[in-house]
Nucleic acid binder design. Structure first.
Lengths: 228, 228
DNA sequence: GATACACTGTGTCAATCGATAGATATTGTC
DNA sequence: GACAATATCTATCGATTGACACAGTGTATC
């Protein structure tokens, strides 16, 4: 019998022993999926790296796909946690017909900064960044979920703000492309941290601040050119 | 005996019959590598799709790795062809100590526009775009070559121009990050064209023009904020 | 028309993949 | 201590992978 959801934690008559095992598998799987991709990372590698037995993956996650989906859910939850501070204020501003371009621009900057926080903080950030980047090119289980998350929590809020600042419709393809270019400023930092460029720079605490500053400055410059 | 480089085309006493076969393999391999990644695309798929026999890949390219490297060389050559119109003028301007910020900014815009041309024109663009994007996350043979190409033909020229405009050193990590953000505007359009966002927009002739316009406008806005 | 080279086909190899069966071990409840 | 649920182990399955050996076919040159 497969276990997947019910790890038995806290349920009477059960044990929470497997919780550690489950977490170890998830952590190692995240690193290996990030490094080698969904197909490239074998369940054997994951099991060995996590110090567990091969069938443990089937036991806890049903199959390889279930394991990957579990990782995605973790990332989605993490993103929601980081964006929850800004998004309500964005919605409020969008509902307010008297919101000024300056206010909207400031919220756009804050939304992008929150997105930077998502991809630069927390445990195993580098691996989570790579999963993010891989979602742009790779065909994996749960990809829809990953994209729905990105659209809902990052892209659509930015699009709505940006369109209002431009005084255009959200449905305008031009605004979609402009928003993509805007977000591309951040997404490009999600590539493999072992690459020469990012290795030379490094995304530690100090450079993260610089990164937020750059995104803010360049976003402000772009918005000012529209509504000075 | 493996053939790889010498397809015998034009050499006396040989046949050029295999040139078609070689090209068919290259085309199908590009599509499949782009769609499923280096490990994900099997040589059997490629051979079947190209309408050739499995050992034909070994015959023409030595092995799977040789086939992939051949594709990369094609992309590199293609990039060089598209950038060759701008890069000499960029070098000339960088060598000229009296080049004005306006001139440098214009050249930066043209370099980025040429990069847009690279990723939006020619046969099998969508697949080549994906290979480009995959190079950011995937570990493949010939990756060094791919990056060296990107650095030399796109990143370094932009970095040099952008640094001069800012009046800072090329070695400044801040300038590296700013240039990454700048180029990220274009790179984000290299993701999978089957994704909902890009599918809704489409990167046909009309939108390519719009894309160039957006990149130019936003780059101008960013540069003006620095040196008004 | 014989010879050499270019090219294509059949068949098969060892290695690795995800997944499963089934036995055993551990832990908590009664 | 009996029992059941949870957890982990050994061993193996069928499928697919890249690569190779080797025979066969076609064409140009002398």
């Amino acid at each position: 019998m497969i276990n997947i959801q019910t790890t038995g934690r806290g349920r009477p008559g059960t044990q929470a022993r497997g919780e550690d095992t489950r977490r170890r598998i998830l952590e190692k799987a995240l690193d290996l999926f990030a490094a080698h991709g969904y197909e490239g990372a074998s369940t054997r590698q994951i099991a060995e790296g996590a110090g567990v037995n091969l069938p443990a993956i089937q036991y806890y996650f049903g199959n390889k796909e279930g394991l990957y989906r579990a990782i995605i859910e973790d990332i989605v939850a993490d993103t929601e946690r980081h964006m929850s501070a800004v998004l309500p204020r964005v919605r409020a501003a969008l509902d307010d017909p008297e919101a000024t371009p300056v206010e909207l621009t400031e919220l756009l900057c804050q939304t992008l900064e929150a997105f930077v926080t998502v991809v630069t903080s927390g445990p195993q950030v580098e691996s989570r960044r790579l999963i993010f980047a891989r979602a742009e090119v790779e065909e994996t289980p749960g990809l829809d979920r990953m994209h729905e998350n990105g659209m809902r929590q990052v892209f659509n809020p930015c699009l709505a703000l940006f369109a209002r600042i431009h005084g255009k419709s959200e449905g305008d393809p031009e605004m979609t492309m402009r928003t993509m270019a805007l977000i591309g400023q951040v997404v490009i930092f999600c590539n493999n941290h072992k690459r020469p460029i990012l290795k030379a720079v490094g995304l530690d605490g100090e450079n993260v601040q610089l990164m937020k500053q750059i995104v803010r400055e360049q976003t402000l410059a772009i918005c000012r050119a529209v509504a000075p």
